[in-house]
């Protein structure tokens, strides 16, 4: 009996590991969540009644690639929140692994950089486990369809992390524009280079 149980348990562990790494892709239905913002209030996507969708950005306080994209995320919110697609940034990094990614760090960052969008704390990492980002920044563009949140795009903000002026494929902006025009999103997914999500050590 013991001989049988061990492989089964091992198999379960492997399956769980793979599950944790799988991620939403275009066409999937995304789960809503309830996370604390920097003011201490709980925020859900369902509370944005007028939104047509969301630019969900897995984000953090410390990653140099996030820093490179910071102004671009601020600009995306400025451009598309009034049109129904606000940015929702989420920090899922474990502060034990990455101390700079603490809640206090988030509060200070929002104050310093004057984020106009919600920046939420995924302390349990449950949202990251569901969505499956591999790194920060990692974008999930969602649209509301028939009362559901549909994943429209997963990946990078654009195709030049170093220099926004050199980017000639603005994946997220183009995808939101397509949705606003009632068109299909042309590029549904890209690979995004960034800092790996700092998972809690078990």
């Amino acid at each position: 009996m013991k001989k049988f149980i061990i492989p089964v348990v091992a198999g379960m562990i492997i399956t769980l590991t793979i599950d944790a790494q799988s991620q939403y892709k275009a066409g999937d239905v995304a789960a809503d969540f309830s996370l604390k913002n920097v003011k201490g209030d709980m925020v859900s996507l369902s509370s944005f009644e007028d939104a047509k969708g969301f630019v969900v950005a897995f984000w953090c306080n410390t990653c140099p690639v996030v820093k490179k994209y910071e102004q671009r995320l601020i600009d995306l919110h400025k451009e598309f929140a009034p049109k129904g697609y606000p940015v929702i940034a989420i920090n899922s990094n474990d502060k034990g692994v990455s101390p700079g990614d603490s809640y206090e760090g988030m509060v200070n960052l929002v104050k310093d950089k004057k984020y106009q969008f919600e920046y939420l704390y995924d302390e349990s990492q449950e949202v990251a486990r569901k969505y499956g980002p591999t790194n920060t920044p990692h974008i999930y563009l969602l649209s509301k369809k028939g009362g559901k949140l549909i994943v429209e795009y997963v990946g990078a903000i654009d195709n030049n992390s170093d220099d926004p002026r050199a980017a000639d494929k603005r994946y997220v902006a183009d995808a939101v524009k397509s949705l606003l025009d009632g068109e299909k999103v042309a590029v549904a997914g890209t690979r995004a280079v960034g800092c790996s999500i700092k998972w809690r050590k078990v």
Binding site: Q23, S161, K169, T190, R191, V193
Partner: peptide, 19 residues
């Protein structure tokens, strides 16, 4: 080449770009 999406998959199909 910072157009990551054009070459990351050539290293490995399963690589999402995380370092």
């Amino acid at each position: 080449d910072l157009d990551y999406d054009t070459w990351i998959g050539k290293v490995d199909e399963g690589w999402q770009g995380n370092l």
